[in-house]
C-alpha cells in the first residue's frame, strides 16, 4: 500500500506491506540504522522516534499508521559538526555506554521538552521510564537530560518547531 511521510524533513513515498512496522520502514527502507529494536513488548524504547513532535515507540506503530506524519529520528536532529543540545548533553555527561538505547533515549529526552518545564530529577526519571538502559544505571542519563532540557529551553527549542504539544482543538 502507498504511504507518504516525511522523515527528518525529507518527503518520501513507499509501497509497504500492511504488517510493516514503522521501525522496519525506518531501518530497512529509509535505511537509517540509528533507531534500534530491543524488545517485543513495547517496553524498552530503543525504537523511540518523534512522530509529529512526540515520542513514539516505532515498533508499535504500523508504517501505514504513520502515513502523512512527520518522523524525526536520531539522524535528523544534529550532526557531529552541529550537535543538538540533547546530544551534546549526553556526550558531556557520559550518558551512554554500549549505545544501543542511546538514540531512543535521546529522542525521549527531547520529547520531554514539550511536556515538562524545568523538570526535577524524579520527573525526568518518570519521563524516561519507557526507555530501558542496561549499562549506565541511568545516573548520567538523568544528568544529561536535565542539562539538555535546560539548554533547549535557553535556545527556545521544542521537540520540533513545526509541531504543537497536543492538538489544541481537542477541547471544543
Amino acid at each position: 500500500m502507498q504511504i507518504r511521510l516525511k522523515v527528518n524533513g525529507e518527503a518520501m513515498n513507499f509501497d509497504v506491506e500492511p504488517r510493516l512496522l514503522l521501525v522496519e520502514l525506518i531501518r530497512d527502507h529509509v535505511r537509517l540504522k540509528g533507531t534500534n529494536i530491543g524488545c517485543d513488548t513495547t517496553s524498552c524504547g530503543a525504537c523511540t522516534v518523534l512522530i509529529d513532535g512526540h515520542s513514539a515507540k516505532s515498533c508499535t506503530v504500523l508504517a501505514l499508521q504513520a502515513d502523512g506524519c512527520e518522523i524525526i529520528t536520531i539522524e535528523g536532529i544534529g550532526t557531529i559538526e552541529k550537535l543538538h543540545p540533547m546530544q551534546e548533553a549526553f556526550y558531556k555527561h557520559h550518558g551512554l555506554q554500549c549505545g544501543f538505547c542511546t538514540p531512543g533515549m535521546i529522542m525521549a529526552g527531547i520529547s520531554l521538552a514539550g511536556e515538562l518545564d524545568n523538570p526535577d530529577e524524579s520527573e525526568i526519571r518518570l519521563g524516561i521510564e519507557g526507555n530501558l538502559c542496561r549499562c549506565t544505571g541511568y545516573n548520567n542519563i538523568v544528568e544529561a537530560i536535565k542539562s539538555g532540557l535546560s539548554e533547549m529551553k535557553q535556545l527556545s527549542l521544542s521537540a520540533t518547531s513545526e509541531s504543537q504539544l497536543y492538538p489544541k482543538d481537542a477541547d471544543k
Binding site: T42, G45, T48, I51, H54, S55, A56, K57, T60, V61, A108, S111, L112, E115, G127, I128, E129, G130, N131
Partner: peptide
C-alpha cells in the same frame, strides 16, 4: 498509564 511515548499513541 504506560510511559510517555505510550500515552501519546
Amino acid at each position: 498509564i504506560g510511559d510517555a511515548a505510550i500515552r501519546y499513541r
